[in-house]
Design a protein around this nucleic acid. Structure first.
Lengths: 108, 108
DNA sequence: TCAATACTCAAGTGTGTGCTTAACCATGAG
DNA sequence: CTCATGGTTAAGCACACACTTGAGTATTGA
């Protein structure tokens, strides 16, 4: 995944409403109005959030009749997760090696 | 970690410059000017980015003399990583169970 | 056919973000 | 002491973002 796409994934996840939508969708697919119902904002605003989520691969949607059904797309989640995992483990590995060197110094 | 803190973590990671700083710091600690040197922006701007990164627990810094040394704080990375991991696996588990049910339907 | 449902789109508004400049403070070297 | 280094802070600007309103389209049920 390109750097520019990761921008949008993290940007999308930065908003609590959008993270709420993702959270809701992990419990199963839902229509736009179902997603909007519990929220204190307009349906139009929810649609805009969904467009952001779809644009960066966090959510897939499909329109049947007049109902648009939304569901999680794990690809986006995985991309962000992998980025974080790589950096964190790289750093922790470095820390461990440093600890080893220090240990070696004090021992013997 | 509270929801509000996750906001700031993802918000921080949404910016490519800040993600670049995190990336750089996984290769080892650095001073503010070292971090700024390769970047096309002012040192003041870098300081502002670092404040954002520190405020949300992605980076720790320590000032000795007039030099501020920055290093990764894995806590922030882990918080975001965990959030993503939980949602993704929850959804994939759901998908697997759905596949099982469909399988059962077509079989026998 | 008529009305309700389920969105969709465009325009506008207030707030937040990234960046710059410019002035400033603290430390270390000569 | 004096100057350079390394960083900090504040003010301001341009643009992006979340949200609303309002008007429109397509589908469905009676």
């Amino acid at each position: 995944m390109l750097n520019h796409e990761l921008d949008r994934v993290f940007q999308a996840l930065a908003d609590p409403t959008r993270r709420g939508l993702v959270d809701r969708l992990t419990r199963g697919p839902a229509s736009v109005s179902e997603l909007a119902a519990p929220l204190p904002i307009t349906l139009a605003a929810v649609v805009q959030h969904l467009q952001a989520l779809e644009a960066c691969g966090l959510v897939r949607t499909e329109k049947v009749g007049r109902v648009r059904t939304c569901r999680i797309d794990p690809a986006g989640l995985r991309a962000a997760e992998d980025w974080l995992h790589e950096r964190r483990t790289a750093w922790e590995f470095k820390l461990d090696r440093l600890a080893d060197v220090l240990e070696e110094g004090t021992a013997t």
